[in-house]
Amino acid sequence: MKKPVSMLGAALITASMLAAPMAMAGSQGAPQGQQQAPAQMQQPQPVESGTLSKQYNDDELRSFLDVNRDMIPVIQSLSSQNVEDQQQAQSLMQDFQSKTEESLQEHNLSVEQYQKIGTDASRDKALEKRLIDMDPELYQQLQSMQSQAQQQPAQ
């Protein structure tokens, strides 16, 4: 049985999509011992269901979902490109960051708010369910993208 993707996993899919090209470019262009590695994230500790969900109003959660929706075509575009060197990887990362910042501003969310909602959704099953129920189609798209990313062979 396929394990369902958490909303945090969906929100952070961008990191996994870009980590491989960045690491590959870093290993090709960086001197031995100075390769860039993706940051390791600690697994957030679960809380009693419904505890964190109460902290957010529907508008905040819609903004979170809107940013995720905006980033899907950006992620798909970037993940389909072959990264040949560190300079290209940095350029792609800057483009991604710029588009992410634009989307966050457009939807009145700070990076911290966005990350907190994603983290809290991975800790509170009621918040995760609330987000999924607000936009089940987006959730399906993010699940599909994560499945595709996991099926791609390592380079």
Results as ranks from 00 to 15, higher is better:
residue 128 E to G: 05
residue 16 S to P: 04
residue 47 V to D: 08
residue 86 Q to T: 02
residue 148 Q to I: 06
residue 124 D to Q: 01
residue 84 E to R: 13
residue 150 Q to F: 09
residue 134 M to W: 05
residue 143 Q to P: 03
residue 143 Q to L: 07
residue 10 A to K: 00
residue 105 Q to E: 12
residue 79 S to W: 08
residue 84 E to Y: 12
residue 151 Q to F: 08
residue 91 S to A: 15
residue 43 Q to S: 13
residue 53 S to K: 05
residue 153 P to G: 15
residue 20 A to Q: 12
residue 9 G to W: 02
residue 127 L to Q: 00
residue 73 P to K: 03
residue 68 N to L: 10
residue 140 Q to G: 12
residue 11 A to K: 00
residue 19 A to H: 11
residue 17 M to V: 03
residue 83 V to E: 02
residue 132 I to A: 06
residue 86 Q to D: 11
residue 53 S to D: 13
residue 92 L to D: 10
residue 116 K to H: 14
residue 104 L to W: 01
residue 89 A to S: 04
residue 122 S to W: 01
residue 67 V to C: 07
residue 48 E to M: 12
residue 75 I to V: 15
residue 55 Q to A: 13
residue 49 S to M: 07
residue 112 E to C: 10
residue 28 Q to K: 15
residue 21 P to C: 04
residue 97 Q to K: 15
residue 104 L to F: 01
residue 49 S to F: 02
residue 106 E to G: 12
residue 135 D to P: 02
residue 78 L to C: 07
residue 143 Q to K: 11
residue 132 I to V: 14
residue 27 S to N: 13
residue 55 Q to W: 12
residue 102 E to G: 11
residue 87 Q to D: 14
residue 110 S to H: 06
residue 105 Q to M: 12
residue 56 Y to W: 05
residue 27 S to I: 01
residue 42 Q to H: 14
residue 143 Q to G: 05
residue 99 K to F: 06
residue 30 A to S: 09
residue 17 M to F: 11
residue 84 E to M: 12
residue 46 P to K: 08
residue 133 D to I: 03
residue 147 S to C: 11
residue 49 S to N: 10
residue 94 Q to P: 04
residue 150 Q to C: 09
residue 78 L to G: 06
residue 142 L to N: 01
residue 127 L to C: 08
residue 82 N to K: 13
residue 149 A to S: 12
residue 12 L to N: 07
residue 6 S to M: 07
residue 139 Y to V: 00
residue 152 Q to C: 09
residue 34 Q to Y: 09
residue 86 Q to A: 07
residue 40 Q to D: 11
residue 147 S to L: 15
residue 53 S to N: 14
residue 113 Q to D: 14
residue 79 S to V: 04
residue 62 R to H: 10
residue 74 V to S: 10
residue 127 L to H: 02
residue 39 A to D: 13
residue 52 L to K: 00
residue 47 V to R: 05
residue 138 L to H: 08
residue 70 D to G: 05
residue 13 I to E: 09
residue 85 D to E: 06
residue 69 R to F: 03
residue 37 A to Y: 06
residue 44 P to L: 02
residue 53 S to I: 00
residue 130 R to V: 05
residue 117 I to Q: 06
residue 154 A to P: 06
residue 105 Q to K: 11
residue 100 T to N: 15
residue 118 G to V: 00
residue 21 P to T: 01
residue 119 T to S: 15
residue 85 D to P: 01
residue 39 A to H: 13
residue 126 A to T: 01
residue 125 K to G: 08
residue 142 L to G: 03
residue 4 P to T: 03
residue 9 G to E: 12
residue 154 A to D: 15
residue 67 V to A: 06
residue 120 D to F: 02
residue 23 A to E: 14
residue 144 S to K: 12
residue 99 K to L: 11
residue 59 D to C: 10
residue 139 Y to M: 05
residue 98 S to F: 13
residue 86 Q to G: 05
residue 41 M to E: 13
residue 50 G to L: 00
residue 96 F to N: 07
residue 1 M to V: 02
residue 140 Q to V: 04
residue 10 A to S: 05
residue 45 Q to I: 01
residue 134 M to T: 03
residue 91 S to V: 06
residue 5 V to H: 07
residue 130 R to T: 06
residue 63 S to G: 04
residue 129 K to M: 10
residue 155 Q to V: 07
